[in-house]
Computed example of a mutant assay.
Amino acid sequence: MSDVTIQGNILTPAGWLSGAISFGERIAGIQGAAADPQLNGDDYIIPGFIDLHVHGGAGKDVMEGGDAVHAIARIHARHGTTSMLATTMTAPPEDIDLALTAIGKAVRQRGKNEARVLGAHLEGPYINSGKLGAQPNFARAATLAEVQRLETMAPLRVITVAPEIAGHLGLVRELADEGMRVQIGHTLGSYEDGVAALEHGAAGFTHLFNAMSGLHHREPGMVGAALAHAEYAELIPDLLHVHPGAIKTALRAIPRLYCVTDSTAATGMPDGEYMLGRHTVHKCMGGVRLPDGTLAGSTLTLDQALRNLVGLGLDLADASARVSTHAADYLGLQERGRLVAGAYADLVVLDRDLKLKAVYIEGERCDLNDA
């Protein structure tokens, strides 16, 4: 691959530079001088987005197996996501096996115009049946042997568990020792359960505020445990799942809060009915819901998440970190989520209105019109 050079306001770990970035598959070099990007009209060049919670898009759901994950990776790439975790639903074992087998194949072979699939986020079935949210009711307790079997199908980079379920606290430690990022989610657990899980190696919280016990001043709940103790947590900033005031609270409390889409098959599609695992969900007016009105994932993309964060008052550098760098750091990925020499050339180019102009994935320019 021959090197490409583009110019603009480049966001580096040391701050903004006005200059040029050269890259092939990886970044070869960055030249420029420190500059305030607000003082000129050049494009913004920032790290490609990293989404650790993706169920679907383009009418496809991860649980379909087959080639669905490739279509999902393509539509999210068109919105600036350069790497992602394909996310499963709570489901019968055969459904999870089908999805993970397809995810494993996608990890090994990235197609043209596709975001890099880094592995799986196993969101269930090891959750509390009393806090399903939009998950089908196939919740069950986990065993290390079963998780190890699933790991043979696809890399399990993140796994959501409810720590209050009998046997799960010890399992959190075992999974963390195996290198998995264990997240607390879909839980009725108390503040004390959350603190204990963190002490046993849990690293984050799944879609903070949603599908977990809430904050009360005499019963702080799982939200209270996150706000008081978490270094990392994921949050859906579509402005439907979480009120802007709660987002601002989390931003003040959790140093490396990062954003996910929790996107569904309805992403990028017209209003209508779509599948989310074994559930039928309905997209209407930008939201995705079960028949009873329960929010069921989103239609969010990370370029819109970035604009939402800036709209809430974050500067662009901070917003960029929360849709890219923090997620990379959470997974221990030093070669993604930052624009430095030697890192993968995953980057996006934005105009002055924060609209996408170009997306590069491992140095290859993505066709933003590819469906």
Rank of each mutant, 00 (worst) to 15 (best):
D3G: 11
I6M: 06
G8C: 03
A14L: 10
W16C: 01
L17Y: 15
S22E: 11
G24I: 07
A35V: 04
D36H: 08
P37K: 10
L39V: 12
Y44F: 15
P47R: 13
I50A: 15
D51M: 00
A58S: 10
A58R: 02
M63P: 11
E64C: 13
G66V: 08
D67F: 09
V69S: 05
V69C: 06
I72G: 10
H76F: 03
T82R: 03
T82V: 09
S83R: 08
M84T: 08
T90K: 01
A102D: 01
G104F: 02
Q109D: 07
K112S: 04
L118K: 12
G124L: 03
Y126K: 03
G133A: 00
F138C: 06
T143N: 01
A145P: 00
A145Y: 03
E146W: 00
Q148K: 14
L150R: 06
A154H: 01
R157W: 00
I165C: 01
G167S: 05
H168M: 03
H168D: 06
L175S: 08
D177G: 07
D177P: 02
G179N: 11
G179S: 13
G179T: 10
M180D: 06
V182D: 14
V182I: 15
Q183D: 09
H186R: 04
G189V: 13
G189Y: 04
L198K: 07
G201C: 13
A211K: 05
A211Q: 04
M212W: 05
M212K: 08
S213Y: 01
L215Y: 14
L215G: 09
H216Y: 13
P237R: 06
D238W: 00
H241Q: 14
V242Q: 09
G245C: 04
I247P: 06
T249V: 15
T249H: 07
A250L: 07
A250G: 10
A253K: 12
I254L: 08
Y258L: 11
T261S: 15
T261N: 10
D262S: 02
T264R: 10
G272W: 10
V281G: 09
P291G: 00
L295I: 15
A296E: 06
S298G: 06
L302V: 02
N308A: 08
L316H: 09
D318I: 03
S320G: 09
S320P: 04
A321L: 10
H326E: 09
D329K: 14
R336H: 10
R352N: 13
D353V: 01
D353I: 01
L354F: 15
I361R: 13
I361Y: 11
D367W: 00
L368A: 12
A371H: 06
